[in-house]
Amino acid sequence: MSHARARQAIEIKLMAWATARPIRVANFEQEFSALPGETYLQAYQLPGATTCRYLGGEAYEYTGVYQVSIVCPAGQPLETAEALVDELSSLFRVDSVLSRNGFEGLVTEPIDQGPTIPESATYTVPASFTYRGVADQPPAGA
Rank of each mutant, 00 (worst) to 15 (best):
residue 79 E to F: 01
residue 6 A to S: 07
residue 23 I to P: 03
residue 65 V to C: 01
residue 70 I to D: 01
residue 127 A to Y: 07
residue 23 I to A: 10
residue 4 A to M: 11
residue 18 A to L: 03
residue 81 A to H: 04
residue 77 P to R: 06
residue 136 D to Q: 09
residue 123 Y to W: 12
residue 51 T to W: 05
residue 79 E to K: 13
residue 40 Y to F: 15
residue 141 G to A: 06
residue 95 D to Q: 11
residue 130 T to F: 00
residue 21 R to C: 00
residue 27 N to W: 00
residue 77 P to I: 05
residue 35 L to A: 15
residue 139 P to Q: 07
residue 64 G to H: 06
residue 50 T to M: 09
residue 3 H to R: 05
residue 31 E to R: 13
residue 60 Y to C: 08
residue 71 V to L: 07
residue 44 Y to V: 06
residue 23 I to K: 05
residue 5 R to H: 12
residue 30 Q to A: 13
residue 90 S to A: 07
residue 18 A to P: 09
residue 9 A to L: 09
residue 59 A to C: 07
residue 133 G to N: 12
residue 76 Q to Y: 07
residue 75 G to A: 08
residue 64 G to L: 05
residue 39 T to W: 02
residue 90 S to V: 02
residue 80 T to K: 10
residue 24 R to K: 12
residue 14 L to Q: 10
residue 13 K to W: 02
residue 11 E to T: 10
residue 46 L to N: 15
residue 91 L to K: 01
residue 99 S to Q: 15
residue 118 P to Y: 08
residue 7 R to N: 15
residue 118 P to W: 02
residue 65 V to L: 14
residue 115 P to N: 12
residue 120 S to A: 14
residue 29 E to M: 14
residue 114 G to E: 11
residue 82 E to N: 11
residue 42 Q to L: 10
residue 3 H to D: 12
residue 58 E to D: 10
residue 120 S to N: 11
residue 128 S to N: 10
residue 78 L to D: 08
residue 43 A to T: 14
residue 13 K to E: 14
residue 50 T to W: 00
residue 86 D to V: 04
residue 16 A to I: 07
residue 44 Y to Q: 14
residue 108 T to F: 03
residue 15 M to H: 08
residue 126 P to I: 06
residue 85 V to F: 01
residue 8 Q to W: 01
residue 88 L to I: 08
residue 53 R to M: 04
residue 78 L to P: 01
residue 119 E to H: 11
residue 29 E to H: 09
residue 95 D to I: 00
residue 109 E to G: 04
residue 137 Q to H: 00
residue 84 L to P: 02
residue 89 S to C: 07
residue 31 E to G: 06
residue 121 A to C: 01
residue 90 S to W: 10
residue 17 W to H: 12
residue 57 G to M: 03
residue 95 D to W: 02
residue 62 Y to E: 12
residue 135 A to N: 02
residue 112 D to P: 00
residue 116 T to R: 14
residue 92 F to Y: 03
residue 25 V to D: 08
residue 124 T to C: 03
residue 15 M to G: 00
residue 17 W to T: 01
residue 80 T to V: 15
residue 27 N to S: 15
residue 61 E to I: 10
residue 62 Y to T: 12
residue 76 Q to D: 09
residue 83 A to H: 02
residue 70 I to F: 02
residue 120 S to L: 12
residue 120 S to H: 04
residue 21 R to S: 02
residue 91 L to M: 11
residue 127 A to S: 15
residue 67 Q to N: 03
residue 77 P to S: 08
residue 120 S to E: 14
residue 21 R to T: 05
residue 139 P to F: 06
residue 93 R to H: 02
residue 82 E to C: 00
residue 1 M to V: 05
residue 142 A to P: 00
residue 75 G to R: 02
residue 103 F to S: 11
residue 58 E to C: 03
residue 110 P to N: 12
residue 41 L to V: 04
residue 128 S to D: 07
residue 134 V to D: 05
residue 130 T to I: 01
residue 35 L to D: 13
residue 36 P to T: 04
residue 130 T to S: 15
residue 3 H to A: 09
residue 32 F to R: 09
residue 81 A to V: 06
residue 114 G to C: 10
residue 119 E to N: 11
residue 29 E to I: 02
residue 132 R to F: 03
residue 64 G to T: 07
residue 74 A to C: 03
residue 31 E to P: 03
residue 95 D to H: 08
residue 93 R to K: 11
residue 4 A to I: 11
residue 7 R to M: 06
residue 133 G to F: 09
residue 126 P to F: 05
residue 97 V to F: 06
residue 48 G to D: 10
residue 70 I to E: 05
residue 43 A to W: 05
residue 79 E to L: 13
residue 44 Y to D: 10
